[in-house]
């Protein structure tokens, strides 16, 4: 009985912690610019999109583009199913990367983003860039 109580208590605590981590980041609505830059430094996508409160960057991308994400083994996965550690985008429309030799570097207003498409906090008039890069 004591074990069961302890187990339930820990599971409740962990569920709450995950809810806190994954709760929507964006508290406002507005318009963002999404740019995708290919390996030759050409801007192949340059669009403006409106977003609502609670939309993540992934939600906006998923509404307007054909995405391929990485699965748990970093292989291409067109389903882009939610992963609790956040999605990694491998392809946006015709711009493809394979994670090993190239990847999509995410910047927000020209600054490297430490967070991915599920977690990054976006606000009105942000410029989001995805640039194909090769690992160092």
């Amino acid at each position: 009985m004591k074990k069961m109580t302890l187990s339930i208590a820990i599971l409740v605590l962990i569920t709450f912690a995950f809810w806190m981590i994954n709760r929507p980041n964006n508290q406002s609505a507005g318009t963002i610019t999404i740019q995708v830059i290919d390996v030759s430094a050409n801007i192949v996508v340059n669009d403006h999109h409106a977003f609502n409160e609670g939309d993540s960057l992934f939600d906006i991308l998923n509404q307007h583009y054909n995405l391929i994400c990485a699965n748990a083994l970093y292989r291409p996965d067109a389903s882009c199913d939610a992963q609790h550690w956040g999605r990694v985008i491998l392809s946006i429309d015709d711009v493809h990367t394979d994670w090993n030799t190239t990847f999509l570097h995410l910047t927000v207003n020209g600054e490297h983003s430490h967070l991915g498409v599920d977690s990054v906090r976006i606000k009105d008039k942000d410029i989001i860039q995805f640039t194909v890069q090769k690992p160092n």
Binding site: K3, L6, S7, I10, L11, I14, A17, F18, I21, H84, W85, H114, L115
Partner: peptide, 26 residues
Amino acid sequence: HFWPYLLADIPFELIMATSNFLTILW
């Protein structure tokens, strides 16, 4: 990269901590 790494690692630490706790307990 200290804070981004520390924060990004929290979900994995939570999974490992829960997994450790439940398996050892039972």
